[in-house]
Design a protein around this nucleic acid. Structure first.
Lengths: 233, 233
DNA sequence: GAGTGGTCTAGACCACTGG
DNA sequence: CAGTGGTCTAGACCACTCG
C-alpha cells in the first residue's frame, strides 16, 4: 500500500481533500491516524501532520489527541476576510484615489469611546473625519478617534493631506483589537458626505485598536451604497 | 547570547511579538534570519520557522526567500470571521431557536443563478425560503437555490421541518465557494418576513457553494436590523 | 493506562529570488 | 551565484484525553 507519489505536505493535503470530496471519508468519519497515513503515503509522519494540521486550521478536520482525527461536520465555519487597505483597494479597481480631510478637532468624545482612552477619566480626544474618494466620487467615510497619548500636537496637523491610516502604520505599535461588520441606514450626515440618499443601506466596519486595555484608536468606515466585501472559501 | 528560555515555537512567537510591539523591530524592518534567531534562542531552526511562518500567516510578517523576513507595514490585512451556524449562534445567545418553512418550490431561477446550475441550459431549480427565529422573533431569512442534481424528490420534502443547512452538511461533499457581505435596504418582502420597516438597513451574507464550476447551492441570508458580526484580531 | 496528536531536534536538500 | 526561507526525515519525547 505504500505509495511514493506523496512527497510534499501539499500533495498529502490534496489527497486527503480528494477523499473528503469523493465522500470516501464523510463528515463525522474518523480517518486513519498519522502514523498509518504516513506509511500509506510513504512519507514521514511530520509531513502528514503538517497537511492535516493545515486542514484543521481551515476547519475541514477536527483533531483531538487520543480521540483521533475526523472530518468536520460543519465545513465552512470560518472565512478569512481581507480587510481593505483603502488606497490600495481603490487603485486595484483601476480608479484614482483621493483624500479629503473634513474635520479635525480635539473634543470630548462620546462616553463609550472616551472611557477606554483616558484611563477612566474623560479627556479631550483627537477626532478626525475624512473621505476617501475613487475617481472623485465618495468611496468611504472615515470617522476616527485617536488617543492623544499616541499623537503629538505636531503630528496632528499632518492629517490635512495624509490619511490617518498611513500615519498609524509607522507610528503606532502592533496591537490587538476587534472588528465589527454591520449595516446602517444613511443619516443626514452620511447622505451628504457620501452623496447618497438618506435611508440608503450602508456597509460599515468598526475597528478598535488597543494596547493592553487602553484604546489607541477607534474608527468607523462607512462605505458608499452598494459596497460589498468578498472572500473565497 | 544563546538563551534557553525559548523551547516552544509559541514562546518564540511571543518573543518576536514582544519585539514588534516594543518597536525594537519596526514595520518595514528586516529581522535576523532563521538560523541566527535559532542560535540566539537556543532552539532548532525548524522551531523558529514554525513561529515565523505562523506570524506570516497572520499577516504580521512578510517573508521572502533570499530577501529575508520583515515586519509587515500593514499589520491588519486579514481577519478570520466565524461564519454563524445559525441554530448554534442563536442558542449561544441563550435564545430559543425556531425554524419556519415559508416557501418550497421547483421553478426557473433568476438567470444569474440558473446559468451555473444547468450546465449551460436553464432548468427548474429547487427554491427554499425559510426563516430562523430566536425566541420567536425573526432572526435571519434564508433564501436558497439548490441544484436538483444534488437533491432527490424525496429529500426535498424534508425541509418542512429541517433547515436546508443541516441537510446539506451530511449530503453534499465539501467544496469551494465564495462569500459576499453587503448591506441592503429592506424591501416589502423583507420587511414583512423580518417584521421590520421598509427601508431598514439589513446585513446580508451571500454564499455560493460549487463543485468544479457547477453551483450546488446558492444562499442569501438576510439578518434582522441591528445584526452585527464581530471578530478579534 | 494507552493511543493519538503536538512538538522538538539535527541535519539535509531544495526552491526561489535578489544582486 | 549565493543567501534565505521552505520542506522533508527519522527519531524522540511530551501532553492530552478517552475509556
Amino acid at each position: 500500500m505504500t505509495d511514493t507519489r506523496f512527497k510534499s505536505w501539499q500533495s498529502v493535503q490534496e489527497e486527503v481533500l480528494a477523499r473528503i470530496h469523493s465522500r470516501k471519508w464523510k463528515p463525522g468519519d474518523f480517518i486513519p491516524n498519522e502514523a498509518d497515513l504516513a506509511q500509506e503515503f510513504g512519507c514521514a509522519r511530520a509531513t502528514v501532520n503538517r497537511a492535516l494540521q493545515n486542514l484543521a486550521d481551515e476547519g475541514l478536520l477536527d483533531r483531538r489527541r487520543k480521540a483521533g482525527t475526523r472530518v468536520a461536520t460543519h465545513p465552512v465555519r470560518k472565512a478569512t476576510m481581507y480587510i481593505p487597505i483603502i488606497r490600495q483597494e481603490i487603485r486595484d479597481r483601476g480608479l484614482e484615489y483621493g483624500y479629503e480631510l473634513i474635520r479635525s478637532e480635539k473634543v470630548m468624545p462620546p462616553r463609550e469611546i472616551g472611557k477606554s482612552m483616558g484611563s477612566g477619566k474623560r479627556i479631550d480626544v483627537l477626532h478626525i473625519v475624512c473621505l476617501h474618494t475613487a475617481d472623485g466620487r465618495p468611496y468611504v467615510l472615515e470617522d476616527r478617534w485617536l488617543n492623544p497619548k499616541w499623537v503629538s500636537r505636531e503630528d496632528f496637523s499632518i492629517f490635512s493631506d495624509t490619511s490617518p491610516n498611513e500615519w498609524l502604520v509607522t507610528h503606532v505599535p502592533f496591537t490587538e483589537g476587534n472588528i465589527v461588520f454591520s449595516a446602517i441606514s444613511a443619516g443626514k450626515t452620511e447622505a451628504e458626505l457620501l452623496s447618497c440618499k438618506e435611508g440608503d443601506a450602508l456597509f460599515v466596519i468598526d475597528r478598535t485598536t488597543r494596547d493592553k486595555q487602553e484604546t489607541i484608536t477607534s474608527v468607523r468606515l462607512t462605505f458608499f451604497p452598494g459596497y460589498r466585501i468578498e472572500t473565497t472559501i
